[in-house]
Design a protein around this nucleic acid. Structure first.
Lengths: 343, 343
DNA sequence: TTGGTTTACGAAAACGTGGTAGTGTTGAAA
DNA sequence: TTTCAACACTACCACGTTTTCGTAAACCAA
């Protein structure tokens, strides 16, 4: 087991100074050709590679970015990570992952852990608990220290920073509109609890589509689900009353559960009940019937977020103290992917 | 925007030496109470936190681990990451993610990028291409430098290191046996190409189960699929000939595609065709019919791998040069989760 | 020989931390 | 008065790099 070789060791071995070695390896003209080649040969032989940590310390750049998400076993979030990773890799950055588990404390802890020099910037999506509490001091603190932050999907207006989102409201509008176009009159919305920002926006879009089409907006048709396990019971009750003929679900898990429940009760999808889900995931694609979805291109969001972050990071190098604050919010387009669950 | 404060700045501000500040903060008795409290108050006020990079350089420990996987938008792998992250977090480690995209070059590049001091150890699953080439020099090199490596799932006997796997062969055996127990006679195996280690093992288990039950082992019933897109065509042909009455698929994507194809042809699952899949993922659970699977507890694998790695890392601190090499291979148990696709 | 330029390299600082060893002052015991 | 310990703090080194500045030797022209 040979430890990695350092400049110092090379210098000692060849009986030159550390600076000579460093310069030789960077092909400085200051060093005579003979010495330079000798050093290079030696370094190559011992497979010298500069130590990243030392470089980070010196340059005050770690060349890595942190990403904090609520969950990782989750189709959408994993596609975002994938997108981030692609761009990061391209620019020579590493990606450090932290899962907040939708817990405020974990989110804070993770941020503190990474904020002490480990990374150059954050990409994050807020945990449910954080959105519920509305406490964002850990984020402002990081930003105040001059560390760039890009938020995606679950964002907040209370923080000024770059953001990557989809237009949840108009995407929801489009989905509901398409149900209406197919002659559906009683459209239910199956959503999460209010404090999740995206849930709120999607509800707004749903409402607007109804009103714009002269359909009544009925609170009873908005079904708020705390966790998936209670979904089936709630749904079956409402289906029993034939209270609606179409459903717009804010995620695919809800959608597939609804379809399964409907099937059990002898209802046919899409004939008796049309279903559209938000988030184009793997379930929607492989479900029977496959589910019409509003695609939310996680990969593209990840790409964009990473690009924005890296640009911020590398911009700071130059105009250093010039922290220019014209933050932008990038809106990624969505589109409806029609499948078997609608007609 | 205030940059993070350092020991040096505190020292200057309070007009004491850097060491005094350092010691005050670690509550050393060497420092008089007055000074100590003054420093602590000041540090607290300015929210002093030691710089991780400087610590890493000094201690030669980064407190982070690298994980290299073929894909991230993949149920099994994301559960493994989740498992790793849990344990890492518990022990105060960060997790750096690299995706090899099943490419040998990317795997090598990623490892080199991280091996230069960025992390204390690796957790990895081999890319397809690496398994195909059988070239593992990048891994041995890292190990020779004294960096611990734990491999999981897609492993190789050519590398000596800690490993976490499931018993693919006996798990496949069990699955096929259960099909036989239900009276199935012509059982097809839908698998990947040979060089993926787990594919090979699962095939072995399939064969053994057939032979042990006095059933013929027929090469024609082994369907090797390069990529999912060709799956449907191949399958529909074989189904047309009614060549088999049960299928054991090595992943859930194959399984769900088979079911959909069978349905299109008017065959009923499980009556006409029983299906079992490897890897208990989200598709199996929500597919219609839901799919019987061999559960492969990724989270537990991740937990175990992380624990093994961190133990290695922290053991090295003590007996330093004593690189003790009794590597262990941990086998995580699997079990059959019966759902609607079998009777 | 002198003065000046070029060549080829080395010393040292800086990044931020933490441990060991050392230094100077004070007060009290011998 | 001397000696010695306790106290309170500082100096210095190491971790591995890069970079700025400095300088000795060699060379050339006058």
């Amino acid at each position: 087991m040979k430890r990695k070789i350092t400049l110092k060791q090379i210098a000692k071995e060849l009986d030159v100074s550390i600076s000579t070695v460093s310069k030789s390896l960077r092909n400085s003209l200051e060093i005579g050709e003979e010495t330079r080649l000798k050093v290079q040969a030696f370094a190559k032989f011992y497979n010298y590679k500069p130590n990243n940590i030392a470089l980070s310390l010196k340059n005050r750049k770690t060349k890595s970015i942190g990403i904090i998400i609520p969950e990782i076993v989750h189709y959408f979030f994993s596609t975002v990570i994938n997108g981030v990773e692609q761009v990061a890799n391209e620019y020579g950055y590493s990606v450090v992952i932290c899962v907040s588990d939708d817990s405020f404390d974990k989110e804070v802890l993770n941020m503190e852990m990474l904020a002490n020099g480990s990374i150059d910037g954050f990409i994050m999506s807020l945990s449910k608990e954080t959105q519920f509490k509305g406490d964002f001091h850990h984020i402002t603190e990081v930003i105040n220290q001059g560390m760039p932050v890009v938020m995606f999907d679950r964002v907040t207006n209370d923080i000024l920073c770059d953001k990557v989102i989809i237009d949840d409201k108009s995407a929801a509008y489009e989905a509901v509109q398409s149900l209406i176009d197919n002659g559906r009159k009683k459209i239910a919305l199956v959503t999460t609890v209010d404090y999740v920002s995206v849930g709120k926006l999607r509800t707004d879009g749903y409402e607007k589509a109804l009103l714009d089409n002269g359909l009544p907006f009925n609170e009873d048709l908005i079904i708020k689900i705390e966790d998936v396990d209670t979904c089936e019971i709630t749904i079956s009750q409402l289906l029993h009353d034939r209270a609606f003929d179409a459903v717009f679900a804010v995620n695919e898990l809800f959608a597939v559960t609804i379809i399964k429940t409907a099937n059990k009760m002898g209802l046919k999808v899409p004939e008796d009940l049309a279903v559209i889900a938000f988030t184009d995931g793997i379930i929607s694609k492989y479900s029977t019937p496959s589910i019409t979805t509003v695609s939310q291109n996680g990969e593209k969001m990840g790409n964009k977020a990473a690009k924005m972050l890296i640009e911020r990071i590398e911009a700071e190098e130059d105009d250093d103290e010039e922290h220019n604050e014209n933050y932008i919010t990038e809106v990624i387009e969505t589109h409806l992917i029609k499948r078997e669950s609608t007609d």
